[in-house]
Amino acid sequence: MGQLDRADLQIIQELRENARITLTELAARVGLSKTPCQLRMRRLEEQGYITGYTALVDQSKLGLSHISFVQITLNDTSSKALTAFNKAALKIAEVEQCHMIAGGFDYLLKIRTKDMASYRMVLGEKISALPHVLQTSTFVVMENVRDIGL
C-alpha cells in the first residue's frame, strides 16, 4: 500500500465525519477538483483504507439501550481455541464488539440488549456457551457519554 498524503488523510477525515457528503463538497473541502478527489476515494477504497459506508443508528430508539461489557477468560488459548471462539462469537447478534485483549483476561465483548433480563439470557445461553469460556465478568454501562460518530 502506498503512503497517504495530506489530501488522502483529509478525505478520510471528512468521510469519517459525514459519509453522505457530496463529491463536490468533499472536493472543495480538501482543495481538489471532483475527478482527482473521486480517483483518490476509489484508490483509498481499493487499498482498504476505506472499508465501507454505514448509517449510525440511535440504538436506544430501537429499544436496545442496555449496554454491558463482558470480560471473558478462556480455558485454552491455542490458535485452534481462539479461532473457534472468534467464529462462534461472530454469530451472536447481541455482540456489538469483540476484542482480543492482552492482559488479565482474553476477550472484551460489548453486548447490546433491550434490558437486564434479556442480557441475562444472552449471557447464560449464548456467551457462557461459547467455546472454551472459563469465566465471565460483567460491567453494566450506567450512561453512554460518548459513542464515536454520534
Rank of each mutant, 00 (worst) to 15 (best):
L4Y: 01
T54H: 09
A27P: 04
A89K: 10
L44W: 00
Y119R: 02
R42W: 03
A129R: 10
V95W: 12
A27C: 03
P36H: 01
I12P: 14
I72N: 00
S68C: 11
D115A: 06
C98D: 12
H132V: 14
R43A: 00
K110W: 05
G103E: 04
V70W: 04
R6G: 06
R40T: 00
S60H: 10
A84V: 01
G103P: 05
Y49N: 09
V30D: 00
K61H: 09
K114V: 01
I148K: 11
K34I: 14
K61I: 11
E17S: 01
N18E: 06
Q10F: 05
A102H: 10
A7C: 01
V30Y: 05
V95N: 13
L32C: 02
L64A: 02
D115Y: 02
R112L: 02
H132T: 13
V133K: 12
F69W: 06
D76K: 07
A88P: 09
Q97W: 05
T22S: 15
E46M: 02
A102W: 12
T35D: 02
V95F: 13
T136W: 10
E25D: 15
A84S: 11
H132E: 13
V95Q: 08
G63Y: 12
S137Q: 15
L44M: 03
A19I: 04
L56D: 07
L123E: 09
R6C: 06
S60V: 07
G52L: 04
Q13L: 14
K61P: 05
V122Y: 03
R29W: 00
A81E: 05
S33L: 03
A117K: 14
S65A: 13
A27K: 05
G2P: 05
L130F: 03
I67A: 04
P36G: 07
